[in-house]
Simulated assay, not measured.
Amino acid sequence: MSAPLYNPFEDLVFDPHFCFLSGALTTERISVFPEWLMDHFKFGDERIEMMDKTKAYKYSDLELPCAPEVKEAFAQLDLKIQAAYKKGFEGMAALEEKLLFQWTGRIVYGLLYYEMVYERNRLQKLGEDFNLSPMLRERFGHFHLMLQSLVEPISFVGQKPWSIIVFPLKYSADIFSYRDDTVNLLFSMGVNGFGIIACLQDNGAIGERQNDIVEKMKGHVLHPIQFEELYARFHYSDYIFQYKPEYIINATDTDISIEALPIKKVGSKPVFGIWNDDMFAQLLANYWQVYGIEREDILKFQKPPLSFLENPYSKEFIVPETIDLPF
C-alpha cells in the first residue's frame, strides 16, 4: 500500500469524529449490534455491562463513528449474513469464513472500542494517563488491520488467524444467547437453529485443540447446555494458551497479504498450559447457572467432572435428545 493503514492503537485514538475503521473524519454512525438482529430478538432496550461491571449500556445505544463507505460496506455484509441467517444452520455454515470473521469482528471490536473509551474517561477523571501494554497494542492492532479487509485490498493466505465453527443448535425461537471476551477477542452466539463460536486471534490453535469434540458433534443438533459447555472449553483453552500468535504481513503498492503462522511448541513449553479441572468447573458453573448447576455439582469427590458433551468414562458423544433439560 502506498501509505500505512489507520491503526487507532498506535496513538490510542478513539474519537467520535473519526471513523473507527478507516480513521476518516465523519459524522455518520453505525450500531455495534446489527439493527436487524436487535429488532428480530427485541433486545435493543436490554443492557450490557462493561468488563468491570460498574458501567452498562443499552444495546441500541452502542454506536460507532463510521465513514459513509465503511457504513455501506457493513450494510452489504449485513445483507449477506441476514440472508444466510434466514436459511438457518445450512445458510450460515455455507458462508465464507472471512465474512463470519468480519461480521463477528465488527461486534467484538465495537464492544472493545467502548471498553477503551470507558477506561480512558475513567482514568482522565482520576488525573491518570490511559495506556495499553505493548502486547495489547499489537494484538488489537492486528485485529483492527484484519477487520479492515472489509474495505481494503487485504487477503488472508495460508493458515487463517481465527478459529470459527458453526453448528446446529436447538433453542426456543425467541432466545438469543450472546457471550464475548473482548480482551481475548472471543465471540459466541446461539439462536434457534445454529450456534457460532469464534476465536478471532488464535491462528487456529484453539479450534485444532477442540477438533475432536467438534467432529463428534457432527450430525447432531446441540442442546443449549452442550453449547454452553463447548464455548466454555474454547474460552478456557484460550486462558491456558501460552503462545503469542505471529503473522507475516506483506504490503505492496496495491494490497496487503496476511499469513498466520502455525502455533508450534518451542522447547519444553507446550502450546497450552495444564488443564485445571477446578478452574474450568468455576468457569462452566457461570455458564450453567441458568440450569441451577453449581461448581460442586460439576466436581464431585472421586468422580470425573460432569459433562453434557462426552461420557466421562467412554468419551462417547452424548446424544442431545437424551438430555432431560429445558431449551
Rank of each mutant, 00 (worst) to 15 (best):
F101W: 07
Q201V: 01
L200R: 00
N286D: 14
F187I: 02
F18Q: 12
L12M: 15
F327D: 08
Y57D: 02
Y178K: 04
S307H: 08
D253C: 01
D61Q: 11
A260M: 04
Y109C: 00
E96L: 12
K160C: 03
A75Q: 13
L77Q: 03
L123M: 11
D253V: 06
G195H: 04
T26K: 05
E259T: 10
A56F: 08
D297F: 07
E321A: 13
K98E: 15
V221F: 11
W288P: 01
F74G: 02
R120T: 11
S188Y: 04
M279D: 15
Y243A: 06
Q302D: 12
Q289G: 05
F20R: 02
G44Q: 11
K42S: 10
A94Y: 09
N211P: 00
L283P: 03
L299F: 05
Q159P: 02
F187G: 00
E246I: 05
D39H: 12
L5V: 01
L77H: 14
F301C: 05
V157R: 12
I48P: 09
P65A: 09
G195C: 10
L77M: 06
G88S: 13
D212M: 13
F280M: 05
V266M: 08
L100S: 02
I197W: 01
L309R: 06
F41I: 08
H223I: 12
F143P: 01
E229V: 11
P312K: 03
A251R: 15
L62D: 01
L325S: 09
L132V: 05
Y6M: 03
F101S: 03
L111G: 01
F308V: 01
P4E: 00
Q148D: 08
K170H: 13
R106C: 12
D278G: 04
R47E: 12
E316G: 02
L25E: 14
F301M: 11
A260E: 04
A93R: 12
R137H: 03
Y247N: 07
D277A: 10
N276I: 11
V214W: 14
D61E: 13
C19N: 09
F241Q: 00
Y231R: 11
K58G: 07
C199K: 09
R233A: 05
D11S: 14
P270F: 08
L136D: 13
S60F: 07
A93G: 11
L147P: 00
R120I: 11
Y114K: 12
K265H: 03
I318T: 03
L21T: 12
W36H: 04
V166G: 09
E46M: 09
L309Q: 10
Y118A: 14
E90K: 15
W162C: 01
R47K: 14
M92R: 06
I206C: 02
N131M: 13
L222T: 09
P245E: 02
Q242W: 02
M51L: 14
I197G: 00
P16D: 15
I164Q: 01
L222W: 09
Y236P: 04
G273P: 03
Q242G: 08
L64P: 00
Q124P: 04
G204S: 04
E46P: 00
V157S: 11
E321L: 04
L5M: 11
K303Y: 03
P312C: 07
R47A: 08
K269C: 00
I249G: 03
Y114L: 11
K80C: 13
L99M: 13
I30T: 14
F187C: 01
F156W: 06
D45W: 06
V319M: 10
G195A: 08
P320Y: 08
